[in-house]
Design a protein around this nucleic acid. Sequence first.
RNA 1: GGACGAUUGGCUCAGCGGUAGAGCACCACAUUGACAUUGUGGGGGUCACUGGUUCGAUCCCAGUAUCGUCCA
Length: 862
Amino acid sequence: MPDHAEHGRELSASFIPADIESVLYSKWLSAEYFTANAASTKEPFTIVLPPPNVTGVLHIGHALDQTLQDCLSRMKRMKGFEVLWLPGMDHAGIATQNVVEKQLASQGKTRHDLGREAFLAKVWEWKAESGGAILDQMKRLGSGVDWSRERFTMDEVMSNAVGSIFKKMYDADLIYRAERIINWCTRCLTALSDIEVEHSDDEGEFVQIRYGEGDQSIVVATTRAETMLGDGAVAVHPDDPRYKHLIGTEVLLPLVNRMIPIIADELVEQDFGTGAVKVTAAHDPNDFEMAMRHNVPFVVIMNEHGVMDGTGTEFDGMDRFAARIAVVAKLKEMGRIVAEKRPYIHAVGHCSRCDTTVEPRLSKQWFVKVAPLAQASGDAVRNGSVKIEPVSLEPRYFEWVDKMHDWCISRQLWWGHRIPVWYGPQGEVVVVGPGEKAPDGWVQDPDVLDTWFSSGLWAFSTLGWPEKTADLAKFYPTSVLVTGYDILFFWVVRMMMMSTFAMDGVPPFKTIMLHGLVRDQFGKKMSKSRGNSIDPIEFLDKYGADALRFTLARGANPGADQALAEDWIGGSRNFATKLWNASRFAMLNGAHVNGELPAFSSLSPIDRWILTRLNETIIEADQLFESYEFSRACELIYHFAWDDLCDWYLELSKEVFASNEKAASQRVLGHVLDQLMRLLHPVMPFVTEELWCTLTGGESLVISSWPTSRPDQIDVEAKRIVTSLQEVVTEVRRFRNDQGIKPSQKIPGRFSGNPDVLSSASALRFLLKLEDKDFTPSATLDIAGAKIELDLTGSIDVVAERARLEKDLATALKDQKTAEVKLGNEGFMAKAPADVVVEIRERLEKTTSEIERIQAALAALS
RNA sequence: GGACGAUUGGCUCAGCGGUAGAGCACCACAUUGACAUUGUGGGGGUCACUGGUUCGAUCCCAGUAUCGUCCA
């Protein structure tokens, strides 16, 4: 037999992630492992990366999201799928425009000083220089995306898709223009969709105002007193006995001195406030609805900046919040304030981009009619064609999809896809699709589309739609969407709607896999204001990508948030180091993968045991990965590698490797490491690649095959034997520890009894530092049916040993009693399943003999 | 106000109708070779509370309390 020297280089004595990461990533890229082939005959596996904002940097949430996607795509590639993981970025309308406007502001300019075209040129310039920082950070993490297919939502292909889908939807009557109450940001000067509004509980005021005079008066309650200037009616519930007599009459609206009607509408809650609400049709969505039903006039009292305008009162020209104070003060002077509550905590909407308080505003905008689209999206999940993992999050999806409002898609911004609608001189409206041209003299709508409109197309626009491309045919629908539950409503639902419509009813993904949010070490939400945000790049530098990835994957329970502490990343780094050192040790001892594995039955019990554990781990880990149980899969592999392989197998095998009987074990160990590296590669791609290539001389784990389990290599007998060995080792170690014998100190010892233990006696002696020589035993242990005699060179510490034995005895007695009680229970004996009864019986026997053993040992002590 | 979820060792979380688990933290011992980014041994929980179902409940059901998230 040739000596099996290590392949390639030797491993350095310590593992330094920075030494290997960028080298390996470059190797993978230049080999084009991540480049998908649409012409392949392999079954496709597709993931589209949720596109980060072009303004974004990698935060810890991205790191989690990408770790899981990389893990799935690497595993599927190893399983023989044609994998496409498609990356890209979102143009992020408001966010990006804000960034560039801020730059301009520092030069004392606004976008209007530049004009639309020059401003857009500036944005593109910014993108080229500073955009997409996140892409390089993804490489640091090891994300194996197909860079040849990188997309940007404003690219030509994508814009083409936007124009096409707009026309298709308009023609299908799914897009319309209407005057509605929309969310308006008075700073960004644009409409916002519902999801771009974040609600928070703010301190405001709740005041009750008396309208009218004498008998003909009514008290309304409001948190936005200034809007009373635009009231067109007062509404009460039709059944409210307090106000029934007033319905149909009119009251005087103070300050503006206008008579307004009292109407009855079921929308009014009798128990809320005074049961009478003011109806400000042009400035509140609920009021708008009531106004439509009752022909209440729309009175606009504010301009786009949120400044009072057109009321014909002294308040014109005041900011809305100043006007609120002034109006209440004036009404108070008039004796019309009946009650005031301040502070009054209530939900207030804020612009998700700049936090400005959103103002509901009557405005003419473009909308998507969502009812039919949402219905189809809900049905796709209801009928099982799309699965949501974990299932427990389905109700949230349905809750949103089933009561979604029409979606306002026009934005008064410049950065984005311009609405492809042109208006003729006579007010004609035409949608101009890609490649079409509007008649001369017609004018294009100045607004752009909501960013989510284009990102809603992501699953198919990235593949070349509306062209019938090879990519689209091969890779649509995508296999799984991996994303945080926080954007289930924002993005996932929109993708479902748009894709299902565009792709003739085929939903964009087969599975939606939702993970949670990364939180700080105490489970608190990370935020700038708390100051508990953490920077993944810092941890990549400090602990390496594998450590960060493993920590995140290990914490990823389906749909649940996870806490993250630096200490835990350190722990994962230690794990990577452990793998490194174990592999190094193994290779120094000649572990290799050359030739066939020796016949299973010819192997030692210890070798058979580690192969058994390997196979069990492969089977279980594979199932866990396939069901997106990343946390449990990582936990399982971690304990196999650290406990079974390092702590037991390597320790029990040291004696063999030091002998001349090591050939079989060298091959077995090589095989176990080979398979373990494959199994762990999706989560820890760098360290496994380095170790595996060194061990096997193979080209790359990325293109190697996924481990397959070998049912013929699962041996219960070997497990039983090794369990006995483990008991012996642990008990002797405990005894030595109790007796104060230093771990390094060798003492004479010998075994007798249990043949399973005897057959591994030399391994045990090596591990337990027991010398094989003649001696007169001063202590005898009875473990797992084996007798272990030791010479402590002198008398043993009787007090310590007695304390130990008595503690064990107490435990055994308690266990024995529990079993006895059960077996003595008639109900239990009559109704418990047979296998449970057998188990309890065995437990009773075991504890009984254990008690006998301990009592005998105690007796021997005295 | 609506919906959903959570409550398990110091911290963060798994788990499960049949004697409570992990990581980190903690205590003790150890530095003659894979690894101190380590090894060995150890301590620590009446599984929020109250009822119910069951031979048996941390687990299932109901209620209570507290906390969290989303929506209005």
